[in-house]
Simulated assay, not measured.
Amino acid sequence: MNDPAAIEISNVEVRYDTTTLSFDCRVAAGGIVAVAGASGSGKSTLFHLIAGFEEPDRGEIRILGEDVADWAPSKRPVSMVFQDNNLFAHLDVATNVGLGISPALRLSAHDRAAIEKALLRVGLEGFAKRLPSTLSGGERQRVALARALVRRRPLLLLDEPFAALDPGMRAGMRNLLRELHAEEGNTILLITHHPEDVRALADSVLFLDQGRIIAHDSLERFLERRDNAAIDRFLGTA
């Protein structure tokens, strides 16, 4: 029997006043999937559906073979890192990371050791007592990534995590993410507007246009496509 897919989205619709978004896809476990498309194409909505922050008007979402319709976001085997990193300015780095383990911050000695290990893995050893305001944009994103790591969920959603970073920081974060993925063997979905992120990280690509998934290809196949104007614009081949 085949292992279940990381994500199966079947006949899912989200209806708004002036538009309806429709999603169908099956994402195999263990890869890095770039999720691309123009602003407003439905990428963040797709992530919110998977994470449980938004409910579909119809259709089914299965994660690792389980129907998660009635599962709260905290119960889903999913961690999500947002573009703005969602750090609490008044809490130090270690405490921000600890929220990934216990929102009430009831942390055991084992939990605190896991926090130290996560900070070491993202290159922030010695930063535990620093406040977010003293960190660079890249360092704040590393804290958010450490918080996701301590949750130890098999599915990681990254919503434009490199958007505020300069090119050098982007390259460093891509390298870090690739290393962590090799260690964890988890499934990563990454929203990006940058073709270089796709080329550097992705095994496959989900491309959205006007609220639909219009392509779900291996990286090689996606980069070779010349049959869609929206994809051509994204790749700069128009």
Rank of each mutant, 00 (worst) to 15 (best):
H181T: 08
L87I: 01
I231C: 02
I214R: 08
I115F: 11
V143F: 14
T45G: 08
D111N: 01
R112C: 03
A69W: 06
R130W: 04
L165E: 03
D17H: 09
G42R: 11
D70Q: 07
D227Q: 04
D227I: 01
A114M: 15
A238P: 05
Q83D: 11
A171K: 14
D111A: 03
G172S: 08
V78W: 08
R106N: 09
E116L: 13
F53N: 09
E196S: 03
T134P: 12
A38V: 13
G123M: 14
F88I: 14
A38T: 05
F23I: 00
L49I: 01
M80I: 12
R174F: 06
E184I: 11
L87S: 10
N186V: 01
A182H: 03
R225F: 02
H110M: 06
D166M: 09
G168M: 09
D166V: 03
A148C: 00
L180M: 08
L155A: 07
S44P: 06
A109I: 05
V198P: 11
H193S: 12
F53Q: 12
D203M: 08
D111S: 07
A202Y: 13
S22H: 00
R112P: 00
K75P: 12
V33N: 07
E220M: 15
L64H: 07
H216M: 02
K117D: 13
E179K: 10
F88T: 10
R212H: 15
P4C: 07
A215C: 12
S79I: 01
F53V: 08
R76I: 08
G40D: 11
G168L: 10
A5K: 04
E224L: 03
D92F: 10
G137I: 03
L105Y: 14
R178H: 08
A72I: 00
L145W: 02
D232G: 15
V81C: 10
V27A: 06
L189D: 15
I63S: 05
G100A: 01
T95D: 15
L87V: 03
I7V: 14
A109G: 14
L107W: 02
G126D: 10
F82E: 00
A144W: 11
I115H: 06
A114D: 06
R106C: 05
I63P: 15
L46G: 07
L177A: 00
N228C: 02
V33I: 14
L176R: 13
E224I: 10
R178E: 02
I9T: 05
R62I: 07
H90W: 07
N96K: 06
G126A: 02
L206T: 08
A128L: 11
V93I: 14
I188Y: 10
A109W: 10
E196T: 14
A182P: 04
I32K: 07
G211A: 02
F234I: 11
H181V: 02
L155P: 09
A202L: 02
E116W: 05
L119M: 08
P132V: 00
